[in-house]
Design a protein around this nucleic acid. Structure first.
Length: 337
DNA sequence: CGTATGTGAATTTCCAAGGG
DNA sequence: CCCTTGGAAATTCACATACG
């Protein structure tokens, strides 16, 4: 408010006031192409083509606002202005307050897309089809019973690694922030954790063994060990979300952090390959008996006839992406041992 | 009656905004 | 940075239908 007052004092033409953006919220105005609602719309972010999108508050659907991706101008209405709120609050309290011009309408231009500096994304390999078992149904509505198999080797491996992280060992590890080795046990233990905390002389930061680990700052500490057996099971995120009383997004983020960590622990990727929770199944490359080519084949459920059920036939159906024809393969029955 | 495949519905994931 | 929300999109599956 004070800065806006100062600017208004020296700038009667209001050429500069509009450049103050801090604390100003805006929304587009217009007509919904789906339900003809007219009025204030919701911001819908950017579409894949770079165009700004709007959401209809009435029918909740979204659309792209301007025709061009770059330089297009969109009229918006200022819905919130911190400075004006401060003025109103002061006036209500009976204090003096400056008269500030309100920027009712504004024009929002879509900035030219700048080439984004890529940060080092964690290099988690795309899962290849060998990770998944096509003898099993891929989804819950399949006629075949679905058995969820836990990979005990992964669970055991993670359990031991986690207990190593949570150990009371006071030998200073390498700094997780700068990878420096000049670290020592901190004489001033942090109150927020019971773990031994360390101090790095290189970057002067404090840390514990859990810093920058998948379970660091995990709000749901109770579900950490219960979660491990789920990682190796090929199940939808929603199952795990229901089990732990959270949303699929939370589970997805957690799976991602564990996959990155597993690759650090075992760069060969053997353990990371065992993670299956919530991963999309890649279409396998199979020899098509129709076009005789090796092509990716989409899973198409299980083969069935009028007389024989999918269970008795025991054949998985695929559809070749090259020639679009169907073919099936016998599934391997689990051997009873 | 078996086979091939088009298609609607169910299931699951993606995505961006927004709150803390 | 963590998590929630809610609609849209993608994927998967079995039913429907035509044909031999």
């Amino acid at each position: 408010m004070r800065f806006r007052e100062l600017i208004a004092h020296h700038d009667p033409d209001a050429r500069w006031a509009s450049r103050v953006l801090l604390g100003v919220k805006y929304r587009p105005e217009g007509t919904c192409p789906h339900c003809d609602f007219h009025g204030q719309l919701l911001n819908g972010g950017f579409g894949a083509d770079g165009r700004r999108r709007a959401l209809c508050p009435h029918c909740k659907r979204g659309w792209s606002m301007a025709r061009d991706a770059e330089g297009a101008e969109i009229t918006v209405r200022v819905v919130k202005d911190l400075a004006l709120t401060a003025v109103a609050r002061r006036k209500r309290a009976g204090h003096d307050a400056p008269e500030l011009a309100s920027a009712d309408h504004a024009v929002l231009s879509v900035p030219p897309r700048t080439t984004v500096q890529l940060v080092d994304a964690p290099a988690v390999p795309a899962p290849h089809s060998g990770r998944f078992d096509f003898n099993q149904p891929l989804r819950a509505n399949s006629p075949l019973p679905r058995r969820h198999v836990e990979d005990l080797r992964l669970t055991t491996f993670l359990t031991s690694e986690i207990s190593r992280v949570f150990s009371d060992n006071t030998d200073p590890p390498r700094c997780p922030h700068c990878a420096g080795i000049d670290t020592r046990l901190s004489s001033r233990p942090r109150t927020s954790t019971t773990l031994p905390s360390f101090h790095c002389r290189g970057c002067t930061r404090y840390f514990t063994r859990a810093t920058r680990m998948p379970m660091a700052n995990m709000l749901r500490k109770d579900m950490l060990f219960a979660f491990l057996p789920w990682l190796s099971q090929h199940r939808p995120l929603t199952h795990a979300a229901a089990e732990f009383g959270t949303s699929p997004e939370v589970i997805k983020a957690r799976v991602g952090r564990f996959r990155v960590w597993l690759l650090e622990l075992d760069p060969s990727g053997q353990y990371e390959q065992r993670v299956k929770l919530g991963l999309k199944v890649p279409w396998p490359v199979l020899p098509c008996p129709h076009c005789l080519a090796e092509a990716t084949a989409r899973p198409h459920g299980f083969k069935r006839t009028r007389t024989q059920s999918a269970l008795t036939l025991g054949r998985r159906l695929f559809r070749c992406t090259g020639c679009n024809h169907f073919f099936d393969m016998p599934i391997e029955r689990p051997r009873k041992t």
